[in-house]
Computed example of a mutant assay.
Amino acid sequence: MPIQIQSTRAQLSVQTVNASLEMQGNGGQVLALDTERGSLEMESTSPEIEIDQTACFAECGLKNIKDFMADSVAYGQQKFQEGVARIVEDGNQMASIENKADPIPDQAIQNAYTMFEHEFNYDAIPKSRPSITLKEGDVNYQYQPARVNNRTVSRKVENNFTPGKVEIAVAEYGKVTISYDSSSLSYHI
């Protein structure tokens, strides 16, 4: 072959210096907390309902002993006065001889029959309503919220960073060599 081509590749030189990071302190911290507990104080009074049915029971004949005794005494006094008035009237009728009437048959019928006649009636009892009194309850409270006091101080992290380097240089440039042999050249025309 009359032409020869030779080539060599270029060679690079690469030098690197690694980056470095130096840190002092890790930022860690010990928590310093003070806590105060919350408190809730409550005081309550219960509601009360008072139902007084004394009047209703009294209308039905169910009375307490004091009212029963007072009514019995009043009834006894009334019947005593009615009895005395009847006896006095009967005596006055017998004493009035001037009328020339015989009161004994009328008094006998009165004392035997008329005095014991009664009228009966039906009625719904009780007529009055019970007395209802409401005493409301009450709730008093004092609330003190919980508190947290944070006395933690953060620590600084110190760092020293050295950047890395990459140096690239051409150690050997590439070449292309072309040679030819002139003795072997022949021209034909």
Rank of each mutant, 00 (worst) to 15 (best):
A19P: 15
Q6G: 10
L185Q: 05
D106C: 03
S183D: 08
Y180C: 01
P126Y: 05
N18I: 04
E48M: 07
K165S: 13
S131C: 01
Q144I: 08
L62P: 00
A169W: 02
G164S: 05
M69V: 13
G83R: 06
V88M: 14
N99M: 13
Q107R: 12
S44L: 03
E41H: 08
L185H: 03
G174I: 01
R86I: 09
P105T: 06
F116N: 14
A108Y: 14
S179K: 02
R151W: 02
P130V: 04
I49H: 05
M23C: 10
K63G: 02
L62Y: 07
A101Q: 14
F68W: 14
N149L: 05
S20L: 06
N111D: 15
A19R: 12
L33C: 09
I49V: 15
T133G: 05
L31G: 09
R37L: 12
L33P: 07
A108V: 15
I49K: 05
A95Q: 10
T54Y: 00
G137S: 00
F161W: 09
A95L: 14
N64C: 04
Q107V: 07
I132W: 08
L40D: 03
Q11I: 09
E167A: 10
V84N: 06
G91Y: 10
Q144T: 13
N121S: 14
P163M: 02
